[in-house]
């Protein structure tokens, strides 16, 4: 009896959390002209149409590039920082930690606006560069946090052992530390990628002619028409994210890093 109540609660909660996603899949598979559920007959036409919309293609490429290179840049900055904060006694370590984590505390829309007004306009930086910087900054806290937590699980006497066997500090890092935090780095990359790809508020003000991230482009498209193509695209993107996360979970138990 108690078990039944448990499952009922879980079932209702999951319906609320995941149900809308299932509805989106079917709404996108409608054969009709307008958004509806249940759909007016099933077809794949909207799923296929998504690929023919030029602006979606452009913004998909931009979002992909931002997510990949922004996250890589964040890892490039974040891994050394996480390592230093973890292994060295630094003056002002707390301040550095707070500064690096600050992008998580400040709402994205403000960051976007601030970069637009004080970087893009006065310094004549292109919107694409500003977007790249913003996405890097946004992912940085995640990179530092996830890498830190896997460094925490790695005893520092392993590095000492490596040094005593003849390694330089750098060799100890590349030969011993890096191979053992690989999982954490990959998890940080995926988390950063998904965060960056799905990000809206930061990119809201940072758009220009022909330069729009995919979620912003979808919002703009929705203002014009409520046809099922946005639903189809949403479903496709969700499948993409899920596939990445699923593979990651299989490879390294991703969920313990979230």
């Amino acid at each position: 009896m108690k078990n039944l109540t448990s499952w009922a609660i879980i079932g209702l909660t999951l319906t609320f959390l995941i149900g809308p996603f299932i509805i989106i899949i079917f709404a996108g598979a409608s054969a009709g002209e307008s958004l509806a559920f249940p759909p007016d007959g099933l077809s794949l036409r909207w799923y296929l149409k998504v690929f023919t919309i030029e602006s979606f293609r452009q913004s998909f490429v931009l979002s992909m590039g931002l997510a990949i290179f922004g996250t890589l840049a964040a890892l490039l900055l974040g891994i050394p920082a996480a390592y230093a904060l973890n292994r060295y006694e630094l003056p002002g370590a707390e301040t550095i930690r707070t500064v690096v984590a600050s992008p998580i505390i400040v709402p994205g829309i403000i960051v976007g606006l601030a970069l637009l007004r004080y970087m893009v306009i006065p310094l004549d930086v292109t919107v694409t560069v500003a977007l790249f910087m913003a996405h890097t900054a946004l992912v940085l806290p995640y990179a530092v946090r996830v890498v830190s937590s896997s460094l925490n699980n790695l005893r520092s006497d392993m590095e000492e052992a490596a040094v005593l066997l003849g390694c330089t500090r750098l060799q100890a890092f590349t030969k011993v530390v890096l191979p053992n935090i690989r999982g954490g780095v990959l998890a940080a990359f995926i988390l950063g990628f998904v965060t960056s790809f799905n990000q809206v508020p930061v990119s809201l003000f940072l758009s220009g002619p022909g330069v729009r991230t995919l979620p912003i482009d979808m919002l703009a498209y929705m203002e014009i028409t409520y046809d099922p193509s946005v639903a189809a695209l949403s479903a496709l993107l969700a499948f993409m994210s899920l596939a990445i996360v699923f593979i990651a979970e299989r490879l390294l138990g991703f969920s313990r890093y979230v």
């Binding site: 005893r155 392993m158 053992n180």
Partner: peptide, 12 residues
């Protein structure tokens, strides 16, 4: 040479 209390073997 140093043999650590935790052994500090390289797990990978």
């Amino acid at each position: 040479g140093l043999v650590f209390q935790s052994y500090a073997l390289f797990p990978h």
